[in-house]
Design a protein around this nucleic acid. Structure first.
Length: 269
DNA sequence: TACAAATGATCAG
DNA sequence: TGATCCTTTGTAA
């Protein structure tokens, strides 16, 4: 499920699997019927992601997908399974002897065909994405450093920073011992540089692993082997459980409509 | 069978 | 800030 690392991974997979091939595009559910008809049979030029947005360029017409809270892609090789449920979009690229590939999209917030200027407009309102090669974290601090808004809310604002979601927000703040309620302008530039550098490392690791793991081995119940699901985070979805560092019960509260998790002792200020 | 929850964003007020 | 949209999955009734 989708924070920036998921979209980055999907773009890479779609690039490797479908780019340079004609793609058969359908919308079994019907809600993307017109767009599917427009793209069907055309060659995918390139797939890329920016923040939580995915762009698939079919040469002048760009498919834009935003997964929202529940959207998901699935896919595989060979023949696709029978379409079931609310299947917004299906891609297939037939190949000889089971070399075909398919991918299914369900539940997205956005699945639409855009012209390049519309794509540019979306990119223009996004802050720097820690996964983009030459992204500049300093640009984000220009917004953060002048704001009275809580850092916990600023981190979720895609025009400040693109690609960070609820998990990375909670975990990043914990790793730097920062209260989610601290105003942005009290996050000094050097502290922000450390946070940004950490985000780059964490999100790249997320792309590699296909999941978000933020804990150090010495803070896990099991120190070696595969990281268990309940060992992957410091505070995210650990309400009431003891903090891995100090033992204080992890707290939760809704901030701007989303569940926020933090340790009131390790993240006091 | 029904309902709640989930890593998101938008719009009204 | 609250309501709303998108869909699947897991748990409760």
């Amino acid at each position: 499920m989708p924070e920036g690392h998921t979209l980055h991974r999907l773009a890479r997979e779609q690039q490797q699997t479908f780019a340079g091939r004609p793609v058969h595009v359908t919308s079994p559910q019907g809600r993307f019927a017109a767009g599917a008809a427009l793209l069907d049979g055309r060659v995918l030029q390139a797939a890329s992601s920016y923040g939580k947005h995915l762009f698939a360029d079919f040469g002048g017409d760009v498919l834009h997908v935003h997964l929202g809270l529940y959207g998901a892609f699935t896919g595989g090789t060979g023949d696709p399974p029978p379409a079931k449920g609310a299947l917004r979009m299906r891609w297939t690229a037939p190949g000889p002897d089971g070399a075909g590939a398919w991918t299914d999209l369900r539940g997205p917030t956005a699945c639409e065909v855009l012209a390049p200027p519309e794509v540019a407009a979306i990119l223009a309102r996004l802050g720097p994405d820690p996964l983009r090669p030459r992204a500049d974290g300093g640009v984000a601090h220009r917004r953060i450093g002048g704001s009275r808004t809580a850092i916990g809310a600023l981190l979720m604002d895609q025009s400040v920073l693109a690609g960070v979601g609820n998990v990375y927000r909670a975990e990043l703040l914990f790793r730097h011992g920062i209260s989610p309620f601290r105003p942005g302008r009290e996050v000094a530039a050097d502290l922000w540089q450390r946070m940004w550098a950490d985000l780059v490392v964490l999100m790249r690791s997320g792309v590699r692993m296909g999941r978000i793991v933020t804990t150090l081995p010495e803070h896990r119940t099991r120190r070696s082997g595969v990281v268990q699901r309940d060992d992957a985070h410091y505070v995210y979805r650990r309400t009431g459980l003891p903090c891995r560092i100090c033992g204080t019960p992890v707290r939760t509260e809704v901030m701007a409509g989303r569940n926020l998790y933090w340790c009131p002792v390790c993240q006091a200020i």
